[in-house]
Simulated assay, not measured.
Amino acid sequence: MWRQALAGARGALQQWCMLSSRRSSTSVSSAVNSMLLRHLKEHYLELSKMTPPPKVSPPSSFTIVEGALDRSGPVLKRTYGDEEISLRVMQLANIISGDDDGEDGINQLFLHVDISKPGQKESLHFLCGLFPDALGIHSVSMRPKLETSGFLVVPTKYNGPVFQDLDEGMRDALHSYIEERGINENLFPFLQAWLYVKDNRNLMRWFRAVGTLIKERKQASDA
């Protein structure tokens, strides 16, 4: 009888230790969640109070693609004769770390220019570096026409020579070709401001989404 009572006491003690450990773990997890939620809220509120840059319009020949701020895809478009031209933009600092020389971090941009014509399956694609006072071409290739999904199509066949391997006359002619279509440094002020707003909106959305997930997990663990 005594041995049975001792065995029962040991079992009860083990169960109490396990329960105590769970309570301690739950308490620590809850504290971490609360701390994270507090920081997320602080950063979200800080972003929401930031003054946006002055509103800038694109050059008059371009129109802003509806809904571009909320999805990946073209930002600006225009027609030039029978050509359809669309522009996508990315921060150069997102691709090459350590190239952030400006206070706002958006002083160097990658510009994707697609020029297509009705009835053709491929478009002429320019990858350019855009700066406040200059535009340079990195590459020129033929690619399948831009899809509405908003993703760049990776070429599966030979898509052209290395731009720097072209002779100077050809390079100058290609620069003149896109400049004639309004692709130049005049696009920079609008695209810089547009990226600032987009990055701010995406970051606020990210803080809100992470906070919602943490809250749901916290409520589930408290239940």
Rank of each mutant, 00 (worst) to 15 (best):
D114H: 07
R78S: 04
S139R: 15
C128I: 02
S123A: 15
K215E: 15
S176P: 01
L203T: 09
Q192H: 11
H43Q: 09
R208G: 03
W194N: 05
A173P: 03
K77R: 13
M90S: 08
T63M: 12
M90I: 08
R23T: 04
I96F: 08
S61N: 03
E216A: 13
G73Y: 02
E46Y: 11
A12V: 10
R171D: 00
L6H: 12
V162E: 10
T51L: 14
D133P: 01
F190V: 06
L213F: 11
Q164L: 10
K49C: 12
N107F: 06
Q120R: 15
M170T: 14
S57R: 07
P52E: 13
D167I: 00
L191W: 05
V89K: 02
A68E: 00
R3Y: 09
S30M: 14
A134E: 13
L40M: 08
D133N: 14
Q108A: 13
P59N: 05
A220G: 04
L47W: 03
F62W: 08
S57D: 08
A223F: 12
S24M: 15
M50I: 10
E147R: 13
S20N: 07
H39S: 07
L19F: 14
D165T: 07
W194D: 06
L152D: 00
T51V: 14
I96E: 09
L37D: 01
T148K: 10
C17W: 15
P132H: 09
S48K: 08
W16V: 15
S61T: 07
F190H: 11
L203K: 15
K55C: 11
T51N: 06
P59R: 06
L191H: 01
H125V: 04
R22Y: 09
Q4K: 14
M142H: 13
R205N: 11
Y177N: 10
P144A: 10
D100V: 14
I183R: 04
G8N: 12
L111V: 02
L36I: 06
A223E: 12
I178M: 08
I214V: 11
K55P: 11
I115C: 06
D165V: 05
N200E: 11
H112T: 06
H175T: 06
Q14A: 15
M170I: 09
H125T: 06
L45S: 13
E83V: 01
E179P: 02
K117A: 10
D100Y: 12
C128G: 01
L166C: 04
F151G: 02
H138G: 06
M204N: 00
D172Q: 11
H43F: 07
T79D: 11
L135A: 05
N200Y: 02
F126K: 02
P54V: 06
E84F: 00
E147M: 11
K77H: 12
L203F: 10
R88I: 03
L127C: 04
M1G: 14
S21Y: 09
L19N: 15
D70S: 12
G119P: 02
G81I: 00
V56E: 07
R88G: 10
C17Y: 15
K215G: 07
E83M: 02
V65H: 00
